[in-house]
């Protein structure tokens, strides 16, 4: 999904950007398997289910970061929370709970959220950090206003998301579906436009790429994935809790940075973001296994993040000045 019809780089093929993160994930899986016999024996499925909202939100963060210009969406956490709250307290609580309404509604709500952010950033041209900080406050505020205390009672079909009976847990199909749709998108000109805008918007503009439209669509895509994350979050939580969503924002940004995506735009993809998120979650899982305190966990997060971005930075520099 990464280097679609990009011709081989002169002097040998360059290592794809997500390889370090993917390797780190494999290493973490090996370490975890050594520590816990149950992990390979099905424990990983549960881990994956709990990790899925973060993985999806990290993937959601990717398009806007790729679109450059300081592109960033601080509102993905509260956005997913808001979608979750509206689904649980707005639809399901009013007996509108059939899958063919709830699932499209989740995606649609996400698209609306993305369109709001996209309008603010691409059309009104408010700096992304400020625009999405403001919508963070707005979404979080509305979510808590709508739903003061957590609610439960989900329709039975939503248990599908948390089911781990199959060969792979069902959330994997959700991620694969999102990734697959994204992969189809990377087969269109949009992917080239996105990279072009992200790495040099002035060059893209003079070449005739519709910069504003590309950025707007990037936010809408982020929003759509946020909507899916909101749906999965509802299923994983077994209900909606307005306070949970916002906690994901910083983790998602950390995951994107861990996944090797350049915060300056123009380099990266969904796979890296997903690897970054998986890495964060695996570290957390491992430290829980070793009965390390949550304090160590917190510190490890920070250290991993700092080390990873330093390595990414050094690698990036080497790539640019061979």
């Amino acid at each position: 999904m990464t280097t679609v019809d990009r011709a081989p780089i002169r002097g040998g093929r360059a290592v794809p950007y997500f390889v370090p993160a993917a390797l780190a994930v494999l290493v973490m899986i090996a370490i975890t398997a050594q520590k816990s016999s149950q992990f390979l024996d099905g424990g990983w499925k549960l881990v994956l289910v709990y990790a899925s909202p973060l993985v999806l939100l990290a993937m959601a963060q990717a398009p806007v970061v790729l679109s450059g210009g300081g592109g960033l969406d601080l509102s993905v956490g509260p956005g997913a929370g808001l979608v979750s709250v509206i689904l649980a307290a707005g639809l399901i609580a009013h007996q509108i709970s059939v899958a063919w309404i709830v699932i499209p509604a989740a995606v649609l709500l996400g698209v609306v959220i993305g369109a709001v952010n996209g309008s603010l950033v691409a059309l009104i041209r408010i700096p992304p950090i400020i625009a999405t900080l403001a919508t963070y406050l707005v979404f979080a505020g509305i979510a808590t206003q709508v739903l003061a205390s957590p609610t439960g009672a989900l329709p039975v079909w939503m248990d599908w998301f948390t089911d781990v009976e199959g060969v792979v847990p069902n959330v994997v199909w959700v991620m694969l579906l999102v990734g697959g749709l994204w992969w189809l998108l990377t087969r269109t000109a949009f992917w080239r436009n996105l990279l072009m805008v992200g790495s040099n918007d002035r060059a893209a503009y003079t070449a005739g790429v519709p910069v504003t439209a590309v950025r707007f669509v990037a936010y809408v895509l982020t929003g759509a994935m946020t909507g899916v994350a909101g749906l999965v979050l509802t299923a994983v939580l077994g209900g909606a809790d307005a306070t949970v969503g916002p906690t994901y924002t910083m983790l998602a940004i950390a995951a994107v940075a861990l996944g090797g995506i350049s915060l300056a735009g123009g380099r990266g993809g969904l796979l890296g973001a997903a690897c970054g998120a998986a890495l964060l979650f695996l570290i957390q899982n491992y430290l829980t296994l070793t009965e390390a305190s949550s304090f160590v966990l917190q510190m490890a997060y920070g250290l991993v993040l700092v080390v990873a971005i330093v390595i990414n930075g050094a690698w990036d520099r080497k790539r640019k000045n061979p």
């Binding site: 960033l72 950090i129 910083m250 940004i253 950390a254 940075a257 915060l263 304090f295 160590v296 966990l297 917190q298 510190m299 490890a300 997060y301 920070g302 250290l303 993040l305 700092v306 971005i309």
Partner: peptide, 13 residues
């Protein structure tokens, strides 16, 4: 942004 996010996590931990 990412640097201070990482530092924050280290400090709290």
């Amino acid at each position: 942004l990412v640097v201070s996010l990482g530092v924050a996590s280290v400090v709290t931990g």
